[in-house]
Structures are given as structure tokens and as C-alpha cells.
Design a protein around this nucleic acid. Structure first.
Length: 309
RNA sequence: GGCCGGUUGGCAGAAUGGCUCAUGCAGAGGACUGCAAAUCCUUCUAUAUCGGUUCAAUUCCGGUACCGGCCU
């Protein structure tokens, strides 16, 4: 059975470094599974691999979308699956790394085959949301798809909007859609899941240091670029950690120090959410309880596990 | 030394003579199937201290401590 290595961990856990080392020993490539590193022009703030990293191992699916584009899981999944299959034909074991839980989940467990909702429907729902309020949409769901309404929290904007879109476009309840089995894009794949879950305080310290370093490396320039491009705040790339915070500084609303402190706090909170997700949703074959900084035993562990698969 | 004002959870900040001390932030835990670095849920912690009045005090009165202002 063809194999795929999946490396997951919170921000600043050293997962990218591990991915590079694994890819090198396997003479394979690293595939991005991060919803922000997929965007161009913000490599510093999104902590995408630098040129040195890229020399050590081949990296794919990084910095491929314009920041004005809205990425999504399924699109990423298609790209990722294509790259995995390519590597397989070369007899290589792909190394997928990233911190976006939903993407990993979709890769391993599949998604329900709901057709893509066209833009006009999405705009319509968005307008309803703005004019009539979230409550209106929730009531709409309660009347037309009670099971999903019950499952969702009345304040959960993202999911209520999504459910409304699906219902309007497909005419079928989301709760019905969810009864159809999820489709795996790579049913034949055998995944070796490696999880890095260091102590949250260690992660926090690394996030702080990294953010300071990002500023030294030119993170402000990237944010200024986004401002110049006048990319709407609603775009995903504009929500990358550090972007909204530094944007406030760039626009003169706060000091750099304040912006950084905010960004550091939000990064920690994000890392915490990632840990929760990893802990409860991703069973792993190998778990590292400390930051990866090149310990050879972990590489050996992975190699041994691969042979056993 | 004298006079005045203040003291509510880790922080900010409401309220009240009596029922479980609002709320926000932070912290902790959790959810997560097409924007997910998003979106959302649950939850711990306080009336400075001592005494008095009262059926009942965080709330009223007094002492002490601490903080701030003014005076000598």
C-alpha cells in the first residue's frame, strides 16, 4: 500500500524542520498543509519555509495563491492529492506537514461530497446576514433543517452561514448530506501520523521569539504590501496571525510594542486550539512531546515505523 | 503629624442591607466535514483587615493596614 507521512503540530513546534529532515532521508518532497502558507507574498508572517529550507528539501504547495484569493479545504485537497500521486509514481513517500487540522482531517478521513456553492448564493447569504442578522439565518435553519440547527450554536456564524448556503443551493438539508458517507480521496493510502505536542509554555516562548524575529526579517513590509493591495479584511490571508495586529500599527492606531504583544497573545491562543484539536481528533502513530530540533532518535523512530507499515 | 478620598477575582470594571457579587480581558477545558491562523461553547478565582449596629452587611458605623491628594 502506498504510504504518506503526515506531520502535525502547533505553530513553532519544529514540525517544518522535522518534515525537511524526513523528506531528505527519504529523498522525497514536503507538501504544505497549512491554510496560510499557501498564500504568496507573506512568507515571513506565515512562517513559510525560507530559501535555505527549500534547498534542503523540495517544497510544494507553498506560496501558490494570491492573497486576494480565498482558499478552501477541498481545493487544497485536490492539489495535495495530485502531488501525492505524482510522488508515488516516482516511488517516493510524500511528507505532508502543517498545522491546519481541518485539512489534515479531510486528507485522512475524507469529506462529504457536497457540490461547491457558487458565488452568487454565497453573496446572497452574506447579504441576508448583514441585513437580517445571524438570528434570521438561524431561524431559517430551524425551520428547514432542524437537526443541524440543533447541532449548531446560534452564535456560530461560520457554520450557520455554511449550512444556509448548502440548503439554499442544493435544496437538501445539511443533516441529510451528512448522512451520506464521507469520500476519501486516497482510500488506498496508508498514513503514518507523527504528532508534535510540546508543553504550551515552551511553544509560547518560541512564538514570542519568532514574532520578534519576523519583524526583523521584514514582516512589516508584508503587511504594508497587503495594505497597498487593499485586500479586503474578510479575506483569509488578512486573518493570518500577526496581520490584523501589525496592520493596526501600520495604520498608526497603536504602537509596535502593543501590536506585537497582541499578536503574541493570539498566537499562544491559536497554539492552544491546535493542541486541543491534535489531542482529541488526531490519533498518531508517533508522538513527540518536545520541540523537534534535530534529535536523531525521532528520525529513526519514523524510519522504523515506515518499515512496519 | 493633621485633613480628605479610595481599597471588589490575575487585570479592568458594575451593583447591592437579604436569593447563586453583572460584564469584558487573561487563564483552564472543549467543539470543529468547503474562509479554519477562522468560528463558537463551557468554566475556576474577589467585596483589604478587625470589631460594632442589624433577624441579615460587600453595602451602614468605628479601629487598623495600604494607596493617592492636600496641609503643617
Amino acid at each position: 500500500m502506498p504510504k504518506v507521512i503526515v506531520i502535525a503540530g502547533p505553530t513553532a513546534s519544529g514540525k517544518s524542520a522535522l518534515a525537511i529532515d524526513v523528506a531528505r532521508t527519504l529523498n522525497s518532497a514536503v507538501l504544505n498543509c497549512d491554510s496560510m502558507q499557501i498564500y504568496k507574498n507573506i512568507p515571513i508572517i506565515s512562517a513559510a519555509p525560507n530559501s535555505e529550507d527549500k534547498q534542503l528539501a523540495e517544497h510544494r504547495l507553498y506560496e501558490i495563491y494570491d492573497c486576494s484569493k480565498r482558499g478552501n479545504v477541498v481545493e487544497w485537497l485536490d492539489l495535495c492529492v495530485a502531488e501525492i500521486q505524482k510522488l508515488w509514481t516516482e516511488n517516493k513517500i510524500p511528507v505532508v506537514v502543517g498545522g491546519t487540522g481541518m485539512y489534515i482531517d479531510a486528507l485522512i478521513n475524507g469529506v462529504t461530497p457536497i457540490p461547491e456553492v457558487p458565488t452568487d448564493i454565497r453573496v446572497e447569504v452574506q447579504q441576508r446576514l448583514e441585513h437580517c442578522g445571524l438570528e434570521f439565518l438561524y431561524n431559517f435553519l430551524q425551520q428547514n433543517d432542524a437537526p443541524i440547527a440543533q447541532k449548531l450554536n446560534p452564535n456560530d456564524k461560520t457554520r450557520i452561514v455554511r449550512a444556509a448556503e448548502i440548503l439554499l443551493f442544493t435544496g437538501k438539508k445539511v443533516s441529510e448530506w451528512y448522512k451520506t458517507p464521507m469520500i476519501k480521496k486516497l482510500p488506498e493510502a496508508e498514513f503514518l501520523v507523527v504528532k508534535i505536542v510540546p508543553d504550551i509554555n515552551v511553544i509560547e516562548q518560541r512564538c514570542r521569539d519568532r514574532l520578534d524575529k519576523m519583524v526583523e526579517l521584514g514582516a512589516i513590509k508584508e503587511v504594508e504590501y497587503l495594505a497597498q493591495q487593499k485586500i479586503p479584511e474578510s479575506m483569509p490571508a488578512m486573518k493570518a496571525l500577526g496581520v490584523p495586529e501589525l496592520m493596526r500599527f501600520v495604520k498608526g492606531y497603536c504602537s509596535l510594542q502593543d501590536a506585537l504583544n497582541e499578536a503574541k497573545l493570539h498566537t499562544r491562543q491559536y497554539a492552544k486550539r491546535q493542541r486541543t484539536w491534535l489531542r482529541n481528533k488526531l490519533p498518531a502513530d508517533i508522538t513527540l512531546e518536545e520541540v523537534y530540533t534535530g534529535q536523531p532518535e525521532y528520525l529513526n523512530k519514523i524510519r522504523r515505523a515506515l518499515n512496519l507499515l
